[in-house]
C-alpha cells in the first residue's frame, strides 16, 4: 500500500490532527494532573514523620525515639537509571525516524535499545524498593515511605506499561507488520514514552536531590 493510498484511507478531521494523536495528547494531559496530585502529596508529607528511615534521606537523621538512621537513597544508581531513561527518549525518536522512512533495521535496533533501557529502569526500581524494605522502610513505616512508594511506584507501573507497549510494537515490526504507513502507531507509543520520561525529569530532583 502506497503512502498516498494510506493517506486517502485516513479520516479527515476538523482539527487537521489525527484523532488518535489528539486522544493520546488529551490522555497525557489528564496524566499531568494525576502526577501533579502525587507530587504535591509527596511534597506535603515527605517531611512529616516520627520514625523510620527518612524523611531527610540525604543526611543521617535522629528520630524522636533516639535511633539514628543513615541515608537510604543510592544516588549513583538512580542517576544511572535517569540517564538511561533520558537516552531511551532519544532512542525512541530514532526508532520513529526509521519507521517513518520505512527503514526496518533502524526501527528494530533503536526500538530494541529503548526496551532494554526501560527494562533496566524497572529493574532498578525493583532493586531499590527491595533494598529499602530490607533497611526497614515498608509502605506503612511512615508518611515519607507511603508517599514515596506511591509516587515512584505509580511512575514505575507507567514505565512497565510503556515497555509492554513497545515490546508489542517490536514484535509487530519483527513480523513486518509495522510499515511506514503505520508509523503513527509507534509515534503514539513514543509520545507516551516521552511523557513517562518528562514525569521522571520532575520526580528525580524533587525526590532524590532536593533537601
Amino acid at each position: 500500500m502506497s503512502a498516498a493510498h494510506a493517506e486517502a484511507l485516513e479520516h479527515p478531521t476538523a482539527t487537521g490532527i489525527d484523532n488518535r494523536k489528539l486522544a493520546i495528547w488529551t490522555f497525557i494531559g489528564s496524566e499531568c494532573l494525576f502526577f501533579a496530585s502525587l507530587i504535591s502529596t509527596y511534597l506535603v508529607y515527605h517531611a512529616r514523620m516520627k520514625g523510620g528511615p527518612g524523611p531527610y534521606p540525604h543526611d543521617p537523621w535522629t528520630a524522636p525515639d533516639g535511633r539514628v538512621y543513615e541515608q537510604i537513597f543510592e544516588i549513583p544508581l538512580v542517576t544511572f537509571g535517569t540517564a538511561l531513561l533520558l537516552f531511551s527518549s532519544f532512542f525512541v525518536v530514532m526508532a520513529l525516524n526509521g519507521a517513518q522512512r520505512g527503514n526496518r533495521k533502524q526501527l528494530l535496533t533503536w526500538l530494541g535499545l529503548t526496551i532494554v533501557c526501560g527494562l533496566f529502569f524497572v529493574g532498578m526500581q525493583v532493586y531499590e524498593f527491595t533494598h529499602f524494605v530490607h533497611k526497614g522502610l515498608g509502605y506503612t513505616t511512615n508518611l515519607f515511605a507511603s508517599s514515596f512508594y506511591t509516587l515512584t511506584g505509580f511512575h514505575g507501573s507507567h514505565v512497565t506499561m510503556g515497555v509492554i507497549w513497545l515490546v508489542t510494537l517490536f514484535i509487530l515490526a519483527l513480523r513486518g507488520k509495522l510499515p511506514k504507513e503505520k508509523a503513527l502507531n509507534l509515534e503514539i507509543a513514543a509520545l507516551y514514552w516521552h511523557f513517562v520520561d518528562v514525569v521522571w525529569i520532575v520526580i528525580f530532583p524533587v525526590v532524590y536531590l532536593m533537601r
Binding site: I17, L33, F35, L43, S89, H194
Partner: peptide
C-alpha cells in the same frame, strides 16, 4: 522529542492547559 515545536498549536494548547492546571494543583496544595 514530543514534536510540540512542529506539531501544531492545538496540541501545544492541550498540553499547556493541562500543565497550568497541574502547576496550580501543586502550588495550591503546598
Amino acid at each position: 522529542y514530543m514534536h510540540l515545536k512542529t506539531d501544531g498549536r492545538l496540541l501545544r494548547w492541550v498540553f499547556g492547559f493541562s500543565l497550568t492546571i497541574a502547576a496550580i494543583v501543586i502550588l495550591a496544595l503546598v
